[in-house]
Design a protein around this nucleic acid. Structure first.
Lengths: 155, 155
DNA sequence: CTTGTAGTTGAAGTGAGGTTCAGGTCAAGG
DNA sequence: CCTTGACCTGAACCTCACTTCAACTACAAG
């Protein structure tokens, strides 16, 4: 039986937490793949679950789907990814997380010094201008990239 | 001169860091307001700058515009907001930031214990399932709200 | 008074990340 | 064999937060 041990869309959805529509969407983007039954239904290998776990984790760290796609593309084509492969992919997140935590901490500490005054000054307030970017010239609270919320054409 | 001390769109854009189109958009949403010249051009009071600083800071903390709108709606209608008003509005961010930092730290620490094994297990990996949510039952890496990246209909 | 820069509008477009729908097909238990 | 629930497709739709466009007007400096 070649088809043993394969998962249906519903099963993968239940086990991964992604909606079936999201799984189809990811397949269109080339993030995951499935084999088909003779009737055309998707059947997933178990390895898709690890791939989906990677996708979710990457999204949580702030990667966009095309970045996830780039990362996944570096996996070896011919063989099943090893633990070392996954480790390599996820190792870069450590510094990304460190950066995010540092940025949020700076924001919080800025808040601590600011909340007493209620200033929210455009020029001086660490809250609207955490890294003291653009502190010269007339105001302009430009944020360091890590603290800017994603903007269209910026994400 | 009643019109002294008022700022044009361009000036507000330069000083706040928001694009003119964003300022018009915010006005449509009722987040900010402007008086008009006889010719119909916008003229902003200086207080709009603090309001915009608040908006930017709130966005940085992760609020969506409608939440920002709700927050701004609690400002007193009749008078110019005081420092105490702004302080009240921003005080809740402190715990929000604490939560975000804690969540990211948990993710990072989970990574520390996980990166050695490269597992990314759906059930056990702290990275894909940081707070050990949905740890019972068949997998499913459901994340605590603060760590979920914003989803459509979820943000 | 002219000229150039800055501003006006509503409508449409963008891009990420999906979801929903209509109209049908598949597969497995009874 | 039949029913029932799961699955299929492409196209359309959705939210959020804006930006871009076209066609036109205002205002201030010289």
């Amino acid at each position: 039986m070649l088809s043993a041990n394969l998962l249906t869309v519903g099963a993968v959805a239940a086990r991964s937490g992604f909606a079936p529509s999201a799984l189809r969407y990811y397949e269109r983007l080339g993030l995951i793949e499935a084999v088909r039954t003779t009737g055309g239904q998707r059947r997933y290998r178990r390895s898709v679950l690890r791939r989906l776990a990677f996708i979710r984790a990457a999204r949580n760290v702030g990667l966009r789907l095309n970045e996830v796609s780039d990362a996944l593309a570096t996996l070896p084509g011919g063989r099943t990814p090893t633990r070392a492969d996954w480790t390599r992919l996820s190792r870069t997140w450590r510094s990304r997380l460190d950066d995010q935590i540092a940025a949020l901490s700076a924001l919080r500490d800025g808040l601590d010094s600011c909340i007493g005054c209620g200033c929210l000054s455009l020029r001086r307030c660490a809250f609207s201008n955490p890294a003291d970017q653009a502190a010269t010239g007339p105001g302009a609270a430009f944020l360091p990239a890590l603290l800017r919320r994603p903007q269209p054409h910026d994400r």
